[in-house]
């Protein structure tokens, strides 16, 4: 709270601060900091569960936010599991291929649509808007993915989501805001359209690629519905789905017939058939690490990215 008081003093040089104003500052700080703690502490708790040794559990009577004993046993178990390592690799591959494809397709479309003089560009923009309004239902979409031969292949992750209206409009907006003089100067020097795109426009477009790329990468990393619906192949499960499986094994225990009749029969012993909480939380942490690694960079970009999306109108 120290810094609050400092600033209060700075302000008070100009205008005296009333009692109610101080109380409001105090309350605002308490509330905002509490919200931040509520967001942060559960994540830290998950980490501490993952490093609490199983043996220490019965001694201490439960998990603590700061564990007394630390062990990386759960991590060894998890990393020795072929399924989890495979899931991690599938996700990494999916992020790399899916994000590159998405950026290539959407930036190309955004560039074409940024040229208002292109005959037909008005119609194209309407087509892209159409996809906002008419979202196809699950079943016809599934049948299309199926007849395109994508079902149960890696490509189901990356091809149907390659074009996205939001990214296209953000790219379009960005290209439209580039000063037209650059392009004209290059044209006077005899550059072709392709030269202009590759030598003038692309070198200037790093930030927008980085911002949209990060968003898309996080989306690919976090998405689990695509695999549930289109890719049942166990060898192609991304880490999010491996995590889902590890976490929801208890629903399978609970969905057993006698429990359906009498839910109270779910005893603590039923929980013992499930991977221990320590293992589950370790998988949570493993799938969380890449997000935490890109988070600082992400944060720098996302406010801008989100606002561009909001303003594009």
């Amino acid at each position: 709270m120290n810094s609050v008081m400092d600033l209060t003093r700075v302000r008070s040089r100009k205008i005296p601060i009333s009692r109610s104003e101080k109380l409001y500052q105090l309350a605002a700080h308490v509330i905002v900091i509490s919200v931040a703690l509520v967001c942060l502490l559960p994540c830290l708790y998950v980490v501490s569960i993952s490093i609490t040794p199983y043996a220490a559990l019965s001694l201490e009577g439960g998990y603590a936010l700061i564990p007394k004993h630390v062990s990386l046993e759960a991590y060894r178990t998890v990393l020795a599991s072929g399924e989890i390592v495979n899931g991690f690799l599938v996700s990494v591959l999916r992020v790399l291929v899916g994000t590159s494809l998405h950026l290539a397709v959407c930036s190309a479309a955004g560039y074409a649509l940024s040229k208002r003089y292109l005959p037909g560009s008005g119609l194209f923009i309407k087509l892209v808007l159409f996809t906002f309004l008419f979202v196809p239902g699950l079943i016809p979409y599934y049948l299309v993915v199926r007849s395109a031969g994508l079902l149960n292949t890696f490509w189901a992750y990356v091809i149907p989501s390659a074009a996205g209206a939001w990214s296209i409009f953000v790219f379009r907006q960005f290209f439209m805001e580039l000063p037209p003089d650059l392009e004209e100067a290059a044209r006077l020097d005899g550059a072709t359209e392709l030269d202009i795109l590759v030598r003038v426009i692309l070198p200037l477009s790093g930030p927008v690629y980085a911002a949209l790329g990060l968003f898309n990468a996080v989306g690919h990393w976090n998405d689990y519905m695509t695999a549930v619906i289109y890719v049942p192949n166990p060898d192609l499960q991304p880490i999010a789905n491996v995590l889902q499986k590890v976490l929801t094994q208890q629903s399978r225990v609970m969905a057993s017939p006698d429990l359906q009749l009498d839910p109270s029969k779910l005893s603590i012993s039923a929980w013992e058939q499930i991977p221990s909480l320590g293992i589950q939380m370790t998988v949570v942490v493993v799938s969380l690490i890449p997000i935490l690694l890109v988070y600082p960079v992400l944060q720098k970009h996302f406010v801008k990215g989100m606002l561009t999306g909001a303003i594009k109108g």
């Binding site: 905002v32 900091i33 919200v35 931040a36 967001c39 942060l40 559960p42 994540c43 708790y45 998950v46 569960i49 559990l57 439960g62 998990y63 996080v218 990393w221 976090n222 998405d223 689990y224 999010a240 789905n241 995590l243 889902q244 976490l247 929801t248 208890q250 779910l266 603590i268 929980w271 909480l277 589950q280 939380m281 998988v283 949570v284 799938s287 969380l288 997000i291 988070y295 992400l298 944060q299 996302f302």
Partner: peptide, 28 residues
Amino acid sequence: TQSVTYLPHFLSWPIVYGIVLALINPAN
């Protein structure tokens, strides 16, 4: 506080469900 409160948006639903399990699973 802003940096911290944005973070959960970038977590997948399976991760959030994992956190929920850590908090309210009936055993521990």
